[in-house]
Every structure is written in structure tokens, then in C-alpha cells.
Amino acid sequence: MNNAMLLEIEDLEVSFDGFKAIDGLNFYVERHELRVVIGPNGAGKTTLLDLICGKTRATGGRITFNNRELTRLAEHRIVQAGVGRKFQTPSVYENLTVYQNLELSSPGARSVLSSLFFRRTPELRSRIDEIARTIYLSDQLTISAGLLSHGQKQWLEIGMLLIQDPQLLMLDEPVAGMSVPEREATAALLNRIRENRAVIVIEHDMDFVKEIGRKVTVLHQGRIIAEGPVEKVAADERVIEVYLGH
């Protein structure tokens, strides 16, 4: 086995009432790689992320992360192993402040007792400030997350993952519904956070993909139909047929 790989997925399969959403998938991600997954609606992109983070259970195949098998692990254990997942619709705690959102997401004090007797340390405060700067929310720390704009909520959720310092970060359509300046800021953010971790991004927007992408995987009906540098994939005939041509 090639130990340089962070994530190895082999023969992965999942079916819902006989419908195979993922069908014999092999998928590898290196340690410091930014990978974009594209594909038409229903190709199985979100299901793939669900399978990796444990939200959906595979009916066959293996998912190995840092040489650890994830398919039988509870969701919170997968997170603790170093996998972070951002959902398609921004999910932040709207009734809590931005600061509290970030603090709650920080690792440590994850059991009942330790969360009851948790005290914030100066290190944590400076870490939260640092993350807030990265996600452009330094000035919003004290307002409740429900008051943020759609784009800011997306950033906050990314920040909530960053504070856990995951080795693998998975983002489901991070720029959906964003304005052009917000999109550019997000591209810059992604290029910064990929420096010391692997990132998987699901995206529809080909311009954005070209902006951030090096290597692209194209899914169609639960299978990979092309994989490689973005220019090469964009020129692939099958890809154009099922996806880009539309």
C-alpha cells in the first residue's frame, strides 16, 4: 500500500433500495492535495462525502484514512480522527455568537464532564481571533450567527472546521449563492487553508473550479469517468457529453 496517500477509497458501494448511488468507486487523495469533485446532479458527489464522514454507511468497500478504516467508525470518531465536513447549506448555530460558534467547534472538552468544567484559555482566545481573521469575520465576533449574510455563514462554517485543524477538509459547494467578490475571497481562503491539509471540494461552477483546481475528479452515476488536471478533464469527450456540454 502506498502510505503517502491520506485517503484511500476502494470498491466503495452504497445502494438505496436497490439504486446504486455509488458503484465500485476507487478514489485516492494525497496528503496536501486540493481535489475538486464535479459531476451532474445525482452523480453521487454529496453521497461520497456522506460516506467518508459516516453520515451514510457503505454497503460495500473500504475507506481508509491515515491507514485507519472509517466505514465502521461512529461519526464523532471520524471527526476526531481528522476529517472535517462542511454541509451544502450553511449550518451554523444561529442562536449563538460567532465567537461561541468557533469556541464550541474547538477540539478538547468534547465529553459531558469536560464540557461542564471547561474554562477558556488565552491560547484558545488567540486561536479563535486568528481563525476569525482568516475567515474575514474579526469584526463580527460578538454578533449572533443568525445575523450574518449567507456568504459569511459559509465562511463561519469553514472557520468552525479550521479550528479543529483537520487533516482532511471536505467542502460541499462552498460558493453556492455567493456574490462575485465573496467568491473571490473564498478562492483566496481555500488557497490559504490548503497549505497544510488535504481539501476535497464539490463544485458546480467551472470558472471557480479553474480558479482553485489542479486535479479534478468527474463523477457520473456513482462512478468516476475522468480524473486529472482540470484542462485535460475539461477537454475529455465523455465529460463534455455528460456534464459540461449541457
Binding site: 464523532h76 471527526v79 472538552a109 465529553s111 464540557s115
Partner: peptide, 30 residues
């Protein structure tokens, strides 16, 4: 209890249970 980190987690779980779970907490225990 409500002022502790646990108290904030309760609110977080009420509003976005999945987000709490995928932040590494065992929601059921809480």
C-alpha cells in the same frame, strides 16, 4: 450548567444537531 460550554452545546444541538455531531461530539451522550 446552562452557562457552561455544555449549556451552549445544548442550544447548538437543538438548532443544528448534525453540525455538533460532525464537530466531534457524541450527541447522544449529551
Amino acid at each position: 450548567l446552562l452557562e457552561s460550554r455544555f449549556g451552549r452545546l445544548l442550544i447548538a444541538m437543538r438548532d443544528q444537531e448534525d453540525r455538533v455531531r460532525f464537530s466531534g461530539y457524541d450527541v447522544a451522550n449529551m
